[in-house]
Amino acid sequence: MFDSKIALIVREDLAIWQRLNVTAFLASGIAYAAPEIRGEPYIDAKGQRYGCMAGQPMLVFAADLAGLQAAHCKGLARELTLIPYVQAMFSTGHDEANRQAFQAEDPDNLNLVGLAIRGPKKAVDKAIKGLAMHS
């Protein structure tokens, strides 16, 4: 049905609030990176309009740090859209500080707690191969 695929990968050893927080930020990153996935507004039976959501599913996977780093490397090699979230971003309070925390990371050894990936289905499937759906 869709030519592209969206995978959100969240580190499995996080507290529940952290998993939810990371998932929300990753989903918002995909929405900004791919505005064409935006669905139509929701309208209830009384005609009240509500906001839009993505019109394409986002699948959530769990991984350990090594699994996240492997998906990151594969995503880079396949030139997929990547949205990263690193551990240090939990201690910041705004976007500029998040970007500074990310830039301070070793790019060859990111301490990833989450990663969103979007691109052609087969390429995303190769990047997330071996990861299980989040439970």
Rank of each mutant, 00 (worst) to 15 (best):
M58G: 05
M58E: 05
M58H: 02
M58Y: 01
M58L: 12
M58I: 05
M58R: 06
M58D: 01
M58W: 00
L59M: 11
L59C: 02
V60L: 09
F61M: 11
F61R: 01
F61C: 04
F61E: 03
F61V: 03
F61I: 02
F61G: 02
A62M: 01
A62G: 08
A62N: 01
A62R: 09
A62E: 13
A62S: 14
A63K: 04
A63Y: 04
A63H: 04
A63W: 03
A63D: 05
D64P: 03
D64A: 11
D64V: 06
D64E: 14
D64S: 10
D64G: 15
D64K: 11
L65G: 02
L65H: 07
L65M: 03
L65E: 11
L65I: 09
L65W: 02
L65Y: 00
A66T: 11
A66V: 09
A66Q: 14
A66W: 00
A66F: 01
G67E: 06
G67W: 03
G67F: 04
G67C: 08
G67T: 06
G67K: 05
G67A: 07
G67V: 06
L68K: 05
L68H: 04
L68T: 07
L68E: 04
L68I: 09
Q69P: 06
Q69M: 08
Q69L: 06
Q69N: 13
Q69V: 07
A70C: 06
A70V: 08
A70M: 09
A71V: 04
A71M: 04
A71H: 03
A71E: 05
H72F: 13
H72T: 00
H72Y: 15
C73Q: 12
C73S: 13
C73I: 07
C73R: 13
K74Y: 07
K74H: 13
K74I: 02
K74F: 04
K74Q: 14
G75S: 14
G75L: 10
G75I: 07
G75H: 08
G75V: 09
G75W: 08
L76N: 13
L76T: 09
L76D: 04
A77L: 03
A77D: 12
A77K: 10
R78T: 01
R78H: 13
R78P: 00
R78S: 15
E79K: 15
E79Y: 02
E79F: 02
L80A: 11
T81R: 10
T81E: 12
L82K: 08
L82F: 07
L82I: 13
L82Y: 07
L82S: 05
I83P: 03
I83S: 05
I83R: 05
I83D: 03
P84Y: 05
P84I: 06
P84C: 14
P84R: 14
P84T: 12
P84A: 12
P84W: 04
P84Q: 11
Y85Q: 09
Y85V: 12
Y85C: 09
Y85P: 00
Y85M: 13
Y85N: 08
V86K: 06
V86E: 10
V86T: 14
V86L: 13
V86S: 10
V86C: 11
V86I: 15
Q87Y: 11
Q87F: 12
Q87V: 10
A88I: 01
A88S: 15
A88C: 03
M89R: 11
M89Q: 15
M89F: 08
M89I: 14
F90P: 05
F90C: 07
S91Y: 09
S91F: 07
S91W: 02
S91T: 12
